[in-house]
Nucleic acid binder design. Structure first.
Length: 439
RNA sequence: GGAGAGGUGGCUGAGUGGCCGAAAGCGCCGCAUUGCUAAUGCGGUGUAUGGGCAAAACCUGUACCUCGGGUUCGAAUCCCGACCUCUCCGCCA
């Protein structure tokens, strides 16, 4: 696939090649922590990297010879000229064959680099799956019901907020239709969230959800995540699973000024996920669905670890503030190595209390990448010394709906089957305070 | 969908085979000058990668004029292909 990758992708790196060269063991150990096997990839890279430099040196020498001769050719006449021409024909052929050899090696190196994962932070706990994630914070008390609480499906259907059977008729599994206050509630919670992050300084952006391949490679969803994305083959376009993709890629191939950093963007978009490989998991209701809407915080900041950590805390606290505003109980977990994606340095998930699960369900995910995505996106800035450096990127959910509606409906339900509307959402619903079955 | 035009540095825009990493202007930086501002003069001002080197500075090789391929001793310049952008017409939320 992809007969016409632009040069940006060709050059796309992931980890700094220098770093792999100098700390191959560290890179391997990092991948091991993520349970991603890369030993042979790294070794192969080191081997090719060595070769590349040797060949490159020789190639440059031939080229230099060529360039010097070119200047003489312009002056010389007759026999002398002819003699030089013949000599240069050989040099030229030599340079060309080196060039071919080299470009084969470079192509292979690129493929390898795209597959070597980012090295996780030492703070990332060891572990295999999400069960090994470490809770670091718990906020709010799960509500104790003095009646038999319903789950969001029962609530949604009895209040006529959702329609699953007809959604299945139209669009198959893992789909839903929101109607009445269900539709309004979704818009309200998205709008409330967007307003909240804009107040924190984020620039709201409504972005394309159907994108080219490059932003997906740049944000490191590809290669590897192809199965998770809906594809429009005729147009070679892909539906994004999150606005992180178009928003983080927004400044790709640019050199920003340090003074304009950090860039804070709030991407709003519909998100599409095939949920391949999740067969049989969370098949009912609004939890795991193919299409949803999300407000996403995206940060592009200086290539500085301390700054990146600060920003990580910042976006995490913004998401927490949104849940606190909704008065939903949640906890924050430090995601373990095995549950971490290839590009991430560290990830905190926020899980919101969902009574029907009898536990917390993931609703937010805050990641930092250092320069991993920025390298792939060729996203740079000029620092105060005039030096060009790669940015760092981060992102975090602000709200994703309708998943969050599960928590709202279930936590706010009343004994009589009605649902109280969270106070912060009421201004977005014409001041209404409850959802009640119509006669 | 039909018909055209075009892709050059931060921007505008020259350049039709070698002396072109690329004129000129704008912008930006430095210096000079001027009560301030403005104006003017001079100089500088891309990125990547390799070498000199322990490193910064600096020097230096190579590559890059959308991308890929071809012709040629030599390509921004000629040929082929792809991608992208724009204009007009049609259709359309």
């Amino acid at each position: 696939m992809g007969s016409s990758w632009p040069s940006r992708e060709r050059k796309a790196l992931m980890l700094d090649p220098k770093r792999i060269r100098e700390d191959a063991d560290g890179v391997k150990a990092g991948a091991r922590k993520k349970r991603i096997p890369v030993e042979t990839l790294v070794d192969r890279f080191l081997e090719l990297d060595e070769k590349r430099r040797a060949l490159g040196f020789e190639r440059d020498e031939q080229k230099a010879k060529q360039n010097r001769a070119g200047k003489d050719m312009a002056r010389l006449q007759g026999e002398e000229r002819e003699k030089l021409r013949k000599a240069m024909a050989e040099v030229s052929a030599r340079a060309k064959s080196l060039e071919n050899e080299l470009s084969a090696i470079e192509t292979e190196i690129q493929v390898l680099l795209l597959r070597i994962p980012n090295v996780p932070d030492p703070e990332v706990p060891e572990g295999e799956t999400d069960r090994d994630n470490v809770e670091i914070l718990r906020v709010g008390e799960p509500r104790k019901f003095d009646f038999q609480p319903k789950d969001h499906i029962q609530l949604g259907e009895s209040l006529d907020l959702v329609d699953f059977p007809r959604a299945a008729k139209l669009a198959g599994s893992r789909t839903y239709i929101l109607k009445n206050e269900g539709a309004l509630l979704e818009l309200a919670v998205l709008h409330y969230t967007l307003d909240a992050v804009v107040k924190k300084g984020f620039t709201p952006m409504i972005v394309p959800t159907l994108v080219r391949r490059e932003p997906l490679v740049g944000t490191a969803y590809f290669p590897g995540g192809e199965e998770q994305a809906y594809t429009c083959e005729k147009d070679e376009l892909f539906l994004v699973g999150t606005s992180e993709v178009p928003v983080t890629a927004f400044h790709s191939d640019e050199i920003l000024d340090e003074a304009e950093l950090p860039k804070l963007y709030a991407g709003y978009s519909t998100c599409y996920r095939r949920e391949a490989g999740a067969a049989g998991k969370d098949t009912k209701g609004l939890y795991r669905i193919h299409q949803f809407n999300k407000v996403e915080q995206v940060v592009i900041c200086r290539g500085d670890e301390a700054e990146s950590r600060r920003m990580h805390q910042f976006i995490l606290s913004n998401a927490e503030a949104i849940l606190q505003g909704l008065q939903l109980p949640y906890r924050v977990v430090n995601v373990c190595g095995g549950d971490l994606g290839a590009p991430q340095i560290q990830k905190f998930d926020i899980e919101t209390w969902m009574p029907s699960r009898g536990g917390y369900g993931e609703t937010h995910s805050a990641s930092r990448f250092y320069d991993y995505q920025a390298r792939r996106l060729n996203l740079r800035y000029r620092d105060s010394n005039g030096k060009v450096r790669f940015c760092h990127t981060l992102n975090n959910t602000a709200i994703a709906s309708p998943r969050i509606l599960i928590a709202i409906l279930e936590n706010y339900q009343q004994a009589d089957g009605s649902v109280t509307i969270p106070e912060v959402l009421r201004p977005y619903l014409g001041g209404r305070s409850e959802i009640r079955r119509k006669k």
